[in-house]
Design a protein around this nucleic acid. Structure first.
Lengths: 128, 128
DNA sequence: ATAAGGGTTCCAGTGACAGGAAGGTCAAGC
DNA sequence: GCTTGACCTTCCTGTCACTGGAACCCTTAT
């Protein structure tokens, strides 16, 4: 399969797939014309990677997960540890964003949003 | 004031303050020795910027907000619009993260996390 | 005189790609 | 056979908001 078809099948942009090759995640064969020739297995790896990225795993975590996926003798505890670390990260980000949201939505709610210059948002940002 | 003191007062790393000068956010005077010499106003701007960044505003949004802050004839509606756009962005990010969190926490909860290789997390990532 | 602790500039790296230029390849239609 | 257009290739740059580090200068205290 050429990169275009794999892109369509996996939902990943061709640019992204080339990048994934650059960083050694897949190593597709090459045809006589120099075109990448993806096997089913290559495509499957890309699907795996796309899903893992969609769950917020970093590329490095994906590399670890892929290695575990291909290791028949893995311990599920190793997988769970990586996933839990990611989950904690996600929780931290959500908490950060919700803290921002709290302050900001309060400020927005109190701003008249009319033609006058008085604005609690700017007052808050500029208070000494 | 030298950069070190401003850094301490504002909580911003010196590196960050230099960066903010690079992108034209502040333009501190220079002493004979070449050291940056920050005025109270410079420092106040940096505090403003630090707070706005802390609320998730982009640098470009901060530039807009700063301009509005210094414009006595501004309309609060202009400020509110910028803030609401940021709020929507934050909401979108929270929603994205919560979707991830939902799937991932479900998978983590169902993973034994022991020495056996069976793992619903990998099964989900690798399903065809 | 020296050492510590400021400060300066400039260059490179981060993460995970996206955009775009310049050019090669392939299949179809005329 | 020629052209057109879609597809592919590599390579370089840019994104965002910094951060780290090297190499060097200035100030103050001992």
């Amino acid at each position: 399969m050429n990169i275009g078809e794999v892109s369509k099948n996996t939902g990943l942009p061709a640019k992204t797939i080339r990048y994934y090759e650059d960083i050694g995640f897949v190593t597709p064969a090459r045809g006589d014309n120099g075109y990448r020739s993806f096997s089913e297995k290559d495509q499957h790896k890309l699907v795996f990677l796309g899903r893992a990225r969609g769950l917020g795993f970093s590329i490095e975590d994906c590399r670890t997960l892929m290695a575990l996926y291909e290791d028949q003798g893995r311990a599920s505890a190793d997988v769970k540890r990586v996933a839990q670390k990611n989950l904690s990260e996600i929780d931290r980000k959500i908490a950060d964003l919700q803290a921002m949201r709290g302050t900001l939505s309060h400020l927005v709610a109190n701003c008249a949003g009319d033609g006058r210059p008085d604005c609690p948002i700017l007052e808050d940002l500029g208070r000494s």
